[in-house]
Each structure stands twice: as structure tokens, then as C-alpha cells.
Design a protein around this nucleic acid. Sequence first.
DNA 1: ACAACATTTTGACTATTCTATAAATATGGA
DNA 2: TCCATATTTATAGAATAGTCAAAATGTTGT
Lengths: 112, 112
Amino acid sequence: MDIELATNALKALAHETRLRIFRRLVQAGPEGLCVADLAGHLNAEANGSFSFHLKELSNAGLIRNRQEGRFIYYIANYPAMNELLGYLTEHCCAGEPCGEQIHTCATTENNP
Amino acid sequence: MDIELATNALKALAHETRLRIFRRLVQAGPEGLCVADLAGHLNAEANGSFSFHLKELSNAGLIRNRQEGRFIYYIANYPAMNELLGYLTEHCCAGEPCGEQIHTCATTENNP
DNA sequence: ACAACATTTTGACTATTCTATAAATATGGA
DNA sequence: TCCATATTTATAGAATAGTCAAAATGTTGT
């Protein structure tokens, strides 16, 4: 992960519709969701604007897709997300105990 | 953390200069850095543009500052960062083991 | 009080991103 | 083959964000 990839990913997430899409896909798991269902869950329409946002997330490498019949399923790219999170917290407090809690899986209630 | 706070934070981070500033402050620890030193570390100038970016990060709640003499020290807001990271990964894979590694402190080489 | 320093604010200009609409592509079924 | 469905692409206009230069604010030392 370099600064350019990271800013691209953050730009992609920095929009309410796209953040909703991404979070929904993170929650959906490795099966993903097809565009219409995804839009349905978010009370959005599967129109040109929605498609534009999917493309932004794809270009940033945060989501992937597969075609199944005439549906296209989008899936969160978990490794990409993890790289981004790691990049943000890298070398936190120069390695010294900083007295602040750093995010861990345990804090997100439901990790393997 | 709600969607609006999260998008504001992500927008703030979604710019190369601001991401550099933020990461540098994360690495600097709770003492923070004054503007001139911060700019120096990033090969940037402590000018109006730099100040604009500091304000964006402040407004998003990602950094704080304190005045010391005629210097202003900026400090990463660790709890805000952690809330953001948690928000992005919340309910990952709907609680099912997803087979993907989720970011943990252990992966960032240097956590308390 | 004055001068120098550190940083922020303002305002005008440019660039980038978002939305809306319409048309295009691709797939599956009758 | 033809039609309906699912989704993307293209284009133009509207909205938002970023940069630059200059002036303003607040602080310290003399």
C-alpha cells in the first residue's frame, strides 16, 4: 500500500452512497450481492448514478464483481480494506505505548 | 459514529497532503507536532494551503491542537480514528467466519 | 511600543467530482 | 428472433473542493 492507493481508496469511501454500499458489502460476506438487491437494501435505485459509484469503488480496488447470468454480484475486497486500515495506523505512536485503545477485531463484536 | 461523521472523516483523509499529515501525527504520538515541524517532515510549506488542510482534518474531528507559546501543536485524535476503523468493518460477514484476515493491532508491528 | 515570527483567514480563480437523463450493451426466456 | 430485464456508458450541467496570494491575528523578545 502506498500513499496513492490509499488516497484513492479513501476518496472512494468518502461519499455517503459509496460508504453505504461498501459497508453493506462488508456485512454481506464473500457471496456478495447483485446490484438490484444492493440498491434495494440501501433504498436506492439501480440507475446510472448508482453504477457510477460502484465503478468508483471498483477502480479503487475496494470491491470486486462476478457475473452470474444476467446479474452482476459485487463483493467487498477484504484484503484491500485491511491493507488500508493497517496503512492508517502504521507505526502508531512511533512504537511507544500510547495509552489509547487501537482498533481490534475483538471490538467489532463478531470476528472469527 | 454515524454515516455522516464517518463520511466527513473519510473526506478529510481523502487527500494526499491531509493523509500524510494525519499519518505523521499518528506516528508522532500524544505530544503532537507544531505546524512548522509537521510541514518540515512532509517537505511542505506552512502556508495558507497547509493551514486549510489542517482545518479540514480538525473539522472532521481527526486531529486536535493546543497552543504552546507562539506554536500550535497538532495531535492525532486516536479514539476518533479507532471509531472510524470500527465503523468500516462493523458486522463484517454478518458475523460468520469469512476466511479473510481482519486487521488487528498485531499486524501493525508496534502496538501496546 | 515595535519588529519578527508562526499560523490562520479571506477572496478570487481553477479543477474535480456528482447528478441526471438518455442511449447502449448484454443476458435469458417466449 | 424479439422482448423484457439488469446494468453500464456517455454527455452535459451543477455543485464542491483545492490553490494561490495577500492581508490579518496573535505571540514573543527587545
